[in-house]
């Protein structure tokens, strides 16, 4: 019965709001729906249907529970070190460098990438696009404001990524919060984008998408792989989260792995 109710709830959200969670992994989805159900003090999932359909604010709360916003700047330093040492040098030949951070949550990843571009002296030729399905996250990302605790963690990651200066070079402090400097922000823009229902975004030299697709089932993941393939410039790079990897069939002629131990791929050109 519970599964039926959850299916009905997800179908209702899909029909009415165009948010499609029907193909998300059921284990993670169920955990988060349980959290939402008790927060709403309801007993049955079917009771959430009228609540969400007649009240867009509740929908926002539900979306915030279902799409999680856990991210850090320079999360997984070895990955960023690889980007600095191996990927950025090969981007120098482009007159315009587009980078897409897909599922960027509250903006930490796109700002990290933009900082790396500045350090490489490529900031003026580059633009980072941050997208997320969640409008609240996009709004927060556009602010570019992070708390002191977050900032000290990010600084540590930054040092471990092998970066040359101090992260505070790129921030100014106001009211005890760290705010991303304007020169960095000018080269980052944020859009709401849905990896499941929306199409190609912009042609990019580098796409980073970490810890987003692990919540998708296999069909949905395949949709996203194709979307990334179509959005990448020839020989462009795709960087995934530490625990993620491309399925073998994408490695036949579309991508090749360019690192032994990191989930980093390059678009292959055949024929």
């Amino acid at each position: 019965m519970t599964n039926l109710e959850i299916r009905l709830l997800l179908e209702a959200i899909k029909e009415h709001y165009r948010y499609d969670f029907t193909e998300y992994k059921s284990s993670s989805l169920r955990r988060r729906l349980d959290i939402f159900l008790s927060a709403c003090q309801k007993q049955y999932f079917s009771e959430l249907i009228p609540l969400v359909l007649h009240n867009p604010d509740k929908l926002r709360l539900l979306i915030n529970t279902l799409t999680i916003g856990i991210t850090e700047m320079f999360r997984d330093p070895p990955i960023f070190r690889f980007i600095v040492e191996k990927i950025i040098p090969s981007l120098r030949s482009f007159s315009l460098i587009n980078i897409w951070s897909a599922g960027c949550s509250t903006g930490q990843e796109p700002f990290s990438l933009s900082i790396l571009m500045k350090e490489a002296g490529l900031l003026n030729r580059s633009h980072v696009f941050g997208t997320d399905i969640n409008q609240d996250f996009i709004n927060a990302a556009s602010e570019g404001i992070y708390s002191e605790e977050e900032f000290s963690l990010y600084s540590k990651n930054y040092v471990e990524s092998g970066c040359p200066v101090s992260l505070s070079e790129y921030f100014h402090v106001r009211y005890g919060k760290g705010i991303v400097n304007d020169d960095i922000r000018k080269h980052v823009s944020f859009f709401k984008h849905n990896l499941v229902t929306d199409h190609d975004f912009v042609e990019c030299q580098l796409i980073m998408c970490s810890n987003v697709l692990i919540y998708f089932n296999k069909e949905l993941q395949n949709k996203a792989w194709n979307l990334f393939y179509n959005s990448l410039h020839n020989f462009g790079y795709l960087v995934l989260g530490k625990q993620e990897k491309l399925p073998d069939h994408m490695l036949v002629d579309r991508f090749k792995k360019v690192s032994d131990d990191l989930p980093i791929y390059q678009k292959a050109i055949h024929g």
Binding site: I214, Y215, G241
Partner: peptide, 21 residues
């Protein structure tokens, strides 16, 4: 379980990872 990821059973035979809080 890998460090820094939760693990859950998606069905009786399949383990999945998650980056929930």
């Amino acid at each position: 379980a890998p460090p820094d990821y939760h693990v859950l059973f998606e069905d009786r035979k399949t383990l999945v990872t998650s980056f929930d809080d």
